[in-house]
């Protein structure tokens, strides 16, 4: 049971408040956020910041971890909330097959090169194309939302890769207003 003691130390060391490992099959974003919100109440976080954090949590749970839902017994996605000096950081990690990795890779590469204005324009274009969005368009919108809500403070990398799977980690920083 030493792992509890080690986990507590690691959580404190990294300033993490919450870690959830799941396949997020039941869209628990609201209840995930209620834990986050309770914590933020103590820190007097303003409403606008809370809303930005909530939107990012929803995008993470509903659109980034969504591929995991097909495998009901797997818990290959992780969501962490990290308190940083000037705000909060949301970290999402999810296992990707090669096809999704390539798709997300190209979306992330393109989005991270755009300015906030260009991102807003791209979002408008996607929404105006058609009402029924495909997976790629949903992922595009989710990632655009993360970039705009964090004013571009998004970092992504892969932790562990082999020929079949990669583990993508995205860190989104939300500064206090």
């Amino acid at each position: 049971m030493e792992y509890t003691f080690i986990l507590q130390k690691l959580m404190a060391e990294g300033n993490f408040l919450l870690a959830i490992r799941d396949n997020f099959e039941s869209l628990l974003s609201k209840s995930v956020f209620s834990i986050v919100e309770s914590q933020m109440k103590n820190d007097n976080v303003d409403l606008n910041t809370k809303n930005r954090i909530y939107s990012v949590v929803v995008e993470c749970v509903q659109n980034i971890c969504s591929n995991d839902r097909a495998h009901s017994t797997s818990k290959n996605s992780i969501l962490l909330l990290n308190k940083i000096d000037l705000g909060h950081k949301i970290i999402v990690g999810t296992k990707l097959n090669i096809e999704r990795k390539n798709r997300l890779d190209s979306i992330l590469l393109e989005i991270s090169s755009l300015t906030l204005e260009e991102l807003k324009e791209k979002k408008k274009n996607i929404i105006s194309i058609r009402s029924d969005l495909d997976e790629s368009q949903k992922e595009n919108l989710a990632l655009i939302d993360m970039f705009t809500r964090s004013a571009g403070k998004v970092k992504y990398y892969y932790d562990g890769e082999n020929e079949e799977n990669s583990f993508l980690i995205i860190e989104i920083e939300i500064s206090n207003n």
């Binding site: 792992y3 993490f16 919450l18 980690i169």
Partner: peptide, 22 residues
């Protein structure tokens, strides 16, 4: 990193939720 270590312990121990704080 602490993140990688937390994830790895969660996987090994089948932990689904950790809350640490007040």
């Amino acid at each position: 990193t602490p993140l990688k270590q937390i994830h790895s312990i969660m996987n090994d121990e089948n932990a689904v939720l950790i809350y640490s704080g007040e």
